[in-house]
Design a binder for these strands. Structure first.
Lengths: 195, 195
DNA sequence: GTCGTCATGTAATTCGTTACATGATTTT
DNA sequence: AAAATCATGTAACGAATTACATGACGAC
């Protein structure tokens, strides 16, 4: 799944310019998929148009620069449906806090404490921003997604609050030399175990 | 957050070879962060060693090829702690199913139905694999993480089951020409609205 | 008068994947 | 006899980021 696919997904909702797409990556629900810069959006749009999956028209506006507005073609819609119909790869969840959680015994207590504070603040902000959207009519079609997202965020906040002390005590509990296996995968050498 | 950072995170748990790291990316809890291929792991290790963040020794084993085992240096441990202590960027959640959920009105019902079946199957498998791990003593340090992950997966399954009909009815409900705003961000042109 | 928004694009560089290359050993 | 596991690496390519380049308008 690359930037071109996400472009098609956003354009499925209606016409948009490169600038509009950028805003979607920054603020809307598509922002959870990860960012994209102008340096990748514009070339992506150019290539999609070359391939006949989208078409564009120039739109002049008084007092503002002209914008190039893109729309899916029928071929583009079909390509998008085809891409969405394949068996997907595993989801990617790239999270700074996730790494910290996995490495708690090897990090100093203040790093853990700060990370928890920061995380709770972030997730609470997220909840506060999403909750009012449920009421709005225009989000009808993603209503269940919003509810699900909010539930997930709340679940995380509850878990962190409930385990905060447990986590902070764990912090720094293991020194560099000590062995600590995670799910029995890594560090399979026998030399180290004998030390 | 790049591959080198995740290499440091895994190596914080103990020594490992490039091959061991690959297994972590495939099977362990680090696999949720996204994949990595040998073509990126080995150069990453080479560069980390050049920078003095890890050191290696060759280990010969009877009946198997020699392996190069890497371990964090003190500088590496410090660099890792420093990296984990900065204010993080937003999490990235790159999900095929997430895109489908956001584009339900623009996709055919059979695509939605198949995606839901596939998703439920996957998440249930995930739960079944994680649940027995909680009991094991070696997962003590990531115990709460496991519980949290399982709760999240269960939450998702419950949501999909509860909203399945709602989703399938939504499928294909909007034709390419129709406007449909998502969180009021995109598709800001006025021309289209008048059509 | 400086900053933010609107608007599009290119160039250099970094990052990561896929395919290639090698080779012994164990399992089916 | 073929396939999988163990093990390391390089080369070609593709994908994405950062920095650069430009320019008008409106708000403070």
């Amino acid at each position: 799944m690359n930037i071109r696919t996400i472009c098609l997904a956003i354009l499925a909702h209606g016409e948009a310019s490169g600038y509009d797409l950028k805003k979607n990556w920054e603020d809307g629900p598509f922002s959870y998929l990860g960012g994209a810069s102008f340096g990748s959006i514009y070339p992506a749009l150019a290539r999609l148009e070359q391939d006949g999956l989208i078409k564009s028209r120039e739109e002049t506006q008084p007092g503002k620069p002209a914008r190039r507005v893109y729309a899916l073609t029928e071929a583009g819609r079909e390509a998008f449906v085809a891409e969405m119909s394949v068996t997907p790869e595993k989801d990617i969840f790239r999270s700074h806090f996730g790494i910290i959680a996995l490495c708690t015994p090897f990090l100093p207590r203040e790093t853990i404490a700060r990370a928890i504070d920061e995380r709770l603040k972030q997730q609470r902000t997220e909840i506060a921003q999403l909750e009012p959207l449920i009421e709005q009519e225009q989000h009808r079609s993603v209503g269940w997604l919003l509810e699900w997202g909010i539930a997930q965020f709340k679940n995380e906040v509850a878990f962190i609050e409930a385990n905060r002390e447990r986590l902070e005590v764990l912090a720094g509990s293991t020194k560099p030399g000590d062995r600590r296996e995670i799910c029995g995968i890594a560090h399979t050498d026998s030399t180290q175990a004998a030390e």
